[in-house]
């Protein structure tokens, strides 16, 4: 019997494809998410919009909160550790969390290095804004990727930019002759072997979800049509007027992302979406997406 192989780690992410992973902060929210059809929940103490509003250092959630959520639902439970905080990751692994998100949404713990994810049995998901960052995370052992977007804004523009950037760079790599791949690796600041793998197969070797700023069913379907394997919705659900109804609508729109009639139907009368922020009004040092190295 072999545990924690790449196949097993990446395999769980394959099973989540076409689904919605929802941020939850309480047992009650976790139940609402599961009832609405979430494929997994992300247990955390504050959703990104609240982290943004209240400031201070954002850390791994209280184990009691995470354990309560693990007790309450049958879907997989993910939890976030700070970038580079390998002890938070060890704690989450010891608790039996199903996936660790080494997340820029929390305050980074290391300004130079990410967690060495190869050393863990628990699989990791990491954020990326471009292909180079995605491949660096894979080089460190991530088993799943997500585009970062700009968390807690309810504004989908950054999620779109990051997804287009990654899919565009993958397409470009696939057209390059072998002798140009080393220079491509240098430009991308990415491990050469990973660059060669993407160039040969024309796709990422792991599942890639979209995250950061998704607030409506149409946002979710947009990211799916742009090539996401699934979506993370953070503040978008529990910062809206009617979380249960919106959660269910986003799940349906993600399944049927190519069916505008159905998206119209599920989008009717959802109540107010989260308010949302214009990205240009956020100062550069407050942009979460640039955390990560």
């Amino acid at each position: 019997m072999e545990k924690a192989t790449d196949t097993v780690k990446r395999g769980l992410a394959e099973m989540l494809k076409g689904g919605v992973i929802m941020d939850v902060t309480t047992v009650e929210q976790a139940r609402i998410a599961e009832e609405a059809g979430a494929v997994a929940v992300m247990a955390l103490e504050r959703v990104p919009a609240d982290i943004r509003a209240s400031g201070g250092v954002a850390r791994m959630a209280d184990p009691k909160v995470i354990e309560g959520i693990m007790e309450a639902v049958t879907v997989p439970v993910m939890a976030k550790c700070r970038i580079g905080h390998f002890v938070e990751a060890q704690v989450l692994e010891a608790m039996g969390v199903d996936y660790v998100d080494e997340s820029e949404v929390l305050t980074p713990a290391d300004e130079s290095y990410h967690v060495d994810k190869h050393r863990f049995k628990v699989p990791f998901v990491c954020g990326a804004i471009n292909l180079g960052e995605a491949l660096r995370r894979l080089g460190e052992g991530a088993a799943m990727l997500r585009t970062k977007g700009e968390a807690g804004t309810g504004n989908v523009i950054e999620a779109v930019r990051h997804m287009r950037s990654i899919t565009g760079e993958v397409r470009r790599l696939a057209t390059l002759p072998e002798e140009e791949l080393m220079s491509a690796a240098k430009e991308l600041r990415a491990p050469y072997e990973r660059v060669v793998e993407v160039a040969r197969t024309g796709k990422l070797p792991v599942v890639n979800f979209s995250a950061g700023g998704i607030a409506t069913p149409a946002d979710a379907a947009l990211m799916m049509q742009l090539g996401a394997d699934g979506v993370f919705v953070g503040s978008g659900i529990f910062k809206s007027e009617e979380p249960a109804v919106r959660a269910r609508a986003i799940v349906r729109a993600t399944t049927h992302y190519e069916d505008p009639e159905l998206i119209a139907e599920v989008s009717r009368g959802l109540g107010e979406a989260m308010r949302g922020m214009e990205i240009s009004e956020i100062s550069k040092e407050n942009l979460i997406q640039f955390r990560g190295w």
Binding site: M1, E2, K3, A4, T5, T7, V8, G11, L12, T74, P76, E93, G96, V97, D98, Y99, K121, V122, P123
Partner: peptide
């Protein structure tokens, strides 16, 4: 989930 959570997933 008869074999446990994700850390107990395996190949055999």
């Amino acid at each position: 989930n008869a074999f446990g959570r994700q850390v107990d997933s395996f190949e055999e």
